[in-house]
Design a protein around this nucleic acid. Structure first.
Lengths: 224, 224
DNA sequence: TGAATAGTGTCTTTCAGACAATATGCC
DNA sequence: GGCATATTGTCTGAAAGACACTATTCA
């Protein structure tokens, strides 16, 4: 509820969005980071993000920041949590609305742009020290991802439009850091009615080719 | 990630907190509202809330606002979601970090204070028209509450420190809008190891008195 | 003793998890 | 034929859900 309000009367914090972008590559869960070239935390790695403009929504700000630092294709985007400790940024009061984004590795082509000189994907088991409170934000996002694997179809955001059941299972195994029984996994997945066979096989290996599936209703928030 | 930054360089939005405070009274789920006495939406009912001060955290802002409009005792508080559509407030850009609070009815003593002239609890089945996008915020909070009933001990936030199993069951029934089998409910609750008998009975009615329990680990975020 | 709520057990169905052998394509 | 991955079913234990009667207190 907003009480009597004079736009010029109060000091206001800055509002930023910061994004946890996860992808899967080489059977590992990876996180997109950018290297800062300004103080504070100059030369440190940080989450991609930036300030929210006055005429854009929070979701739009997150999408814009992702676009600036990567070639966006299909992406799943979900607001995570808002971090607002008064001292989390040493320069001034900055409140950060954080997002989790998921994408297949093929959907991305990194590009340095604007103030960012270097970007890269890092395995979550081997992250560098992060600027600000970005370590906390990452941990929060990872917990959310693990938790949502169990009761949602969020995992599909990490796969290309067609995929095999083995690829899908690998996503679960990597994120949850545990092995899953193949028969039980397939039984459960096929019983959900979320998958449709595309009637093709994925050939290529020196072994039996696997059936390709696609996800019935893909939760894509933004398509470029 | 914050790029090169000059505090005075950018226009900044205002940041507010708005709070969904639920309580149970007369076997109904009720919501705390305050009546606005300023434009816009003068005389309309709205969620309690206000602007975040520069030196307080978001949680602290939510607690402060609740204190201003009620006699706080024990309260459960959880951040919900951040609403930031550019036009959600007609005066200026306001980003609202929303919270859900739960409390037993006994924990509250409403008081008009500051800019608020009138406060009241409304049954969620009979809400007045709400100011701004507060209807959306309410719906979001209600869904979160319903969802968390199933896998967390959040319901205890709505009860006094000791309670009967029938009272606890009523909470579930009211929030989920459905009847629950008494035997199954008690079986499940007692199997969770969350409850401790306090060894007393609740007398008073013209019927068999019920055993009183307390919650083993109470999730209270703020105690006055 | 009647009214009102407290308290209690069994059966069935469903879901999760353990567990191993055969099928297919490529070289 | 050998290698590598794909594909498939049964059993068991746990949890959820359907279902009805007895117990206790007070007026």
């Amino acid at each position: 509820m907003l009480k009597g309000y004079d736009v010029s009367k109060y000091e206001r914090p800055s509002v930023a969005v910061d994004i946890i972008l996860f992808t899967i590559e080489d059977d590992q869960l990876k996180l997109l980071l950018v290297r800062r070239n300004e103080e504070p935390f100059k030369d440190k790695w940080a989450l991609p993000g930036g300030f929210v403009k006055m005429d854009e929504s929070l979701d739009q700000a997150a999408i814009r920041e992702l676009k600036e630092e990567s070639g966006v294709k299909d992406i799943y985007l979900e607001q995570l949590y808002t971090f607002g400790e008064p001292q989390r940024d040493p320069r001034t009061r900055v409140i950060s609305v954080t997002y989790m984004a998921l994408a297949a590795k093929t959907a991305w082509r990194l590009r340095a742009s604007g103030d960012v000189v270097e970007t890269g994907f890092f395995s979550i088991t081997d992250l560098p020290a992060l600027a600000f409170d970005h370590e906390s934000i990452f941990k929060y996002g990872l917990e959310r991802l693990k938790s949502k694997l169990g009761y949602s179809s969020i995992a599909f955001g990490l796969l290309p439009s067609t995929f095999t059941l083995s690829q899908l299972q690998k996503i679960y195994e990597v994120i949850l850091s545990k092995n899953i029984d193949k028969r039980n996994f397939r039984k459960k997945m096929l019983s959900t009615d979320l998958l449709v066979s595309v009637g093709e096989k994925l050939a290529g290996g020196a072994h039996r080719p696997a059936e390709l599936f696609r996800f019935k209703k893909r939760e894509v928030v933004y398509t470029d």
